Simulated scan of single mutants.
Amino acid sequence: SDYCYDIAQSEHNELIISGDKGLSFLNVENRTLKTIGLDALILSGINYGCGLLVCNNGEIFVGGIDGLTSFFKQEVFDINKNYTIYFSSLSVNDEKIKPDDKTNILKQSLPFTDKIVLNHKQNNLNISFTSNNYIRSHTDGIYEYKLEGFDNKWITGDQIIYTNIHPGNYKLWIREKKLSSDDIISKTTSMDIIIQHAWYANPYAYIIYFIIVYVILFSFMRFRKVRHDLKTSLEMERKEKEQIEQMNHSKLQFFSNISHEFHTPLTLIIVQIERLLNNNNISPFLYNRLLKINKNAIHLRSLVSELLDFRKLEQGHIKLKVKEQNIIPFLKEIYLSFLELSSERNILYKFETYEKEGIICWYDPKQMQKIFYNLISNAFKYTKPGDSI
């Protein structure tokens, strides 16, 4: 210091000099000078008139502009004094952190905190540290720090600053670098720093992402397989349908050819029967028999013609020829065609109507005849002798 406000003599015959930067202890015999700074005295400043007093027991009182402090010299300068290094202040993203503030980072004072937990956005740190070795804090002591998991080597400095720290678990170490062999112990301290991952980047999120990707890939592969199976199935159905259509076409072609072969002989038979019916020399019994043969032959020819029309029906060329006429005589004629068959099978066969004047309907006689022929044929097929139709 360039100022001298007060001078006192200690019990060891040393001169204690107060100045604007703290206290100095001058040993004239040994020509040594030791100092204690203002921060070690817990004073913000010393000025003229603040006062300096040394008691008989060796306790030293020093007045400052903001108060009074006292200490024993041997305790301050004891080389074997047990002191510690501790973290004094913390700033996150240029915001000073205090216990139980809105950030909820510190639950108690930083010197008593051994772990801090930060979110992924709180990754810019400014940390200060100090020690309670006041005399050594004003010597040429040097400190080193290292953030395990981030730094590869020790860094020398009195202020710790880190920016853009990636999420993870870290440990901040501070140690006192020894300058001379008379220093006994190298003091260290540490604090765990945990920077959490964002919710979308933590391990559980990656597990969910993996599951989602797996489900998407599995669904895609399954969809492709189902689509391929469906395509294969449709292709097989198409080929099977083509084969069935080809078989049906072959059958229709076969029946058409057979129908042509049947149609001509039946026509010739009908012509001969009609000639016999036109002969006036035949008996009534034979005439009735020939008439029934002629009707059945004509019906058989119509059935053969139906085989030819079925091909046209498949191609959509058949149209109904509907006309208005009385349906009672039409049904009566169909009834008479099966009358002789009922006598042979001993089946009571009757035709009943409650409309004496007839019933006028719109219908296609050819198609209607086919329907009733099938109905009555099935009735005779499943009716036992003695029953009635």
Rank of each mutant, 00 (worst) to 15 (best):
I7E: 04
S10A: 14
S10P: 03
I17W: 06
L23C: 04
L38C: 11
D39N: 15
Y48H: 05
L53R: 13
C55N: 15
N56P: 04
G58L: 12
G58I: 13
F61R: 14
V62D: 08
F87H: 14
L90H: 12
D94C: 05
K96C: 02
I97D: 00
S109L: 04
L110M: 01
D114F: 12
V117M: 00
H120L: 13
K121D: 12
N133G: 13
Y134Q: 10
G149C: 06
K153W: 08
I160V: 08
T163C: 05
Y170V: 00
K178T: 00
K187C: 12
T188S: 13
T189D: 07
I195R: 04
Q196C: 00
W199R: 14
N202T: 03
Y209D: 06
I216E: 00
F218H: 09
R227L: 08
D229L: 10
M236G: 04
E237W: 14
E240I: 02
K241T: 07
M247T: 07
H249N: 05
F254H: 03
S256L: 11
S256M: 08
H260R: 15
E261F: 02
I269N: 05
I273G: 06
N279T: 09
V304N: 01
V304C: 09
L308G: 08
Q315V: 06
H317A: 15
I318G: 12
N326M: 09
E340S: 11
E344W: 13
I347F: 11
Y349S: 07
K350T: 13
E355Q: 10
G358A: 07
I359P: 12
I360Y: 10
I360H: 01
K366R: 11
M368D: 09
F372L: 10
N378R: 06
N378C: 01
A379F: 12
A379M: 11
I389F: 11
